[in-house]
Simulated scan of single mutants.
Amino acid sequence: MRESAAERHARLLDLVRERGTVRVAELAGLLGVSPVTARRDAEALASRGLLDRVHGQVSWPRATGPGAPAGAPAGAPAGGPGAGEGLVLGLLAPSATYYFAEVIRGAHEAAARAGARLVLRISDYRPEEDRARTEGLLAAGAEGVLVAPGWRGPEDRAAYGDWLAGLPVPAVLLERRAEPGSPLDGLDRVSSDHAHGVLLALRHLIGLGHATPLLVARGDSPTALAVRAGYTEALAVLGLEAPRPVIDSVPAEADPEGFERAVRALYEAVRSGLASAALVHNDVDAIEITQRLAPLGVRVPQDLALIAYDDEVAALADTPLTAVAPPKRQVGRHATELLVERLTGGADEEPASRHVSLLPRLRVRASCGAARPVPPL
């Protein structure tokens, strides 16, 4: 017969009464339950004044009014400052540079505020290694994980994704979206709404008097694919038709000829009068494209109004680039806060899973020919 929560709580209280003090991390093994269950039980009993919980451990109550969550003053609510005291959180990211550097920074700041320790693993965009690296985080003591799989496209998600739904600890997806209806779709996730970012860019360019802007984009990451999908959605919202298919871009260092074809395609579109504006994913490609176009006689913004997507280094271009800025740091922060809340919440009711979308901003600079954002259409 399955043990009830009340019976499990009674066993926990007996253990603490016999030992005086027990680390919360040890309770799972002693009780034969998951770390999450042990932590929630300890939190629930402490909130009722049946245990003292301080600095990652529980003790038999003192006569001085126990019950405050670890790291917080007496009477502080669960989930407030210090509620994650003693927690170990894992973070799997595909890279520690460029886009994900800010995501990691936001996660680290939120973990520090909660009194938790963050452990990092990098997959280097090798999705076949995601599972082993996440298991390494669990072996290092992670009681919950933030996961940005190294997927590059839907095929990677299909081949290397299902294991995430079977993790023994809470998991939050970072900047990744599951296939609707799949096992992963029930996980918590926090991501940027890239479709909104693309809409901001196109609406701004059209408001400046340009015809339908072109899209120049890679296809080698979930962000790139989301930007492409967002372009189609934005055209529909704005009642426009694409002047031509998306111009496929590739990293210049990896495929110089492919990158040159993208530059040439954009040049021909501008010179033929087909387009006078473009959105380019990502910053690095946008900077290199402007450098390649200049010797061909296409100037930014005089001949081509250009907006970059990512806003990592866009402001450093010779002509500072207007850019869509996904809320990368906030994604890391909100995901970490969500995970801490899930790990330290009460045991009475399982919190609902959440899909959180954060909106990018448009940072207007010189490359689009406008000193400030134009009013919405």
Rank of each mutant, 00 (worst) to 15 (best):
A140D: 14
A132L: 05
P149S: 08
A139Q: 06
P154Q: 15
V147S: 07
G153E: 13
A159W: 04
A148D: 09
P127M: 01
G141H: 12
E143K: 11
A142D: 07
A142C: 12
R157D: 15
W151G: 12
G141C: 09
A148L: 09
E128H: 02
V145F: 03
E129Q: 10
V145L: 12
E155H: 05
E155N: 06
R152I: 12
A140G: 05
G136K: 00
R126D: 11
W151I: 12
E129D: 11
A139C: 04
R126L: 13
A140P: 13
P149Q: 09
D130W: 03
W151F: 15
A158H: 12
R126A: 13
P127Y: 10
T134N: 03
P154R: 14
D130M: 01
A158G: 09
P127Q: 09
A158N: 08
D130S: 01
L137M: 05
A132K: 03
E129I: 00
L137Q: 03
E143N: 12
D130R: 00
L137G: 13
W151K: 11
V147W: 01
Y160G: 10
D156L: 05
L138S: 07
G153C: 12
A132P: 00
P149A: 07
R126Q: 14
E155K: 02
E155I: 04
G141Q: 13
A159T: 10
R126F: 09
D156E: 09
E143R: 13
G144W: 14
E135C: 00
R126V: 14
E129A: 12
T134L: 04
E143S: 14
R157G: 15
R131A: 13
E129P: 06
G136C: 03
T134F: 00
G150M: 02
R133E: 06
R133Y: 05
A142S: 10
G150R: 03
A132N: 01
G144C: 12
A148G: 14
D156W: 07
P127S: 10
A142N: 13
P149D: 07
A132H: 05
L146K: 07
G153V: 11
G136Q: 02
A159R: 13
R131M: 06
V147E: 05
G153Y: 07
E129K: 01
G153Q: 10
L146N: 13
W151S: 12
A132F: 02
A159D: 11
G141E: 14
R126T: 12
A140I: 02
G150E: 10
P154D: 15
L146H: 12
A158E: 15
P149M: 03
E129C: 05
E128D: 14
A140N: 09
G136R: 02
L137Y: 07
R157H: 14
P154K: 11
A132D: 08
L137R: 01
A139E: 11
P127L: 04
V147K: 00
D156T: 08
R126G: 12
P149R: 03
L146V: 10
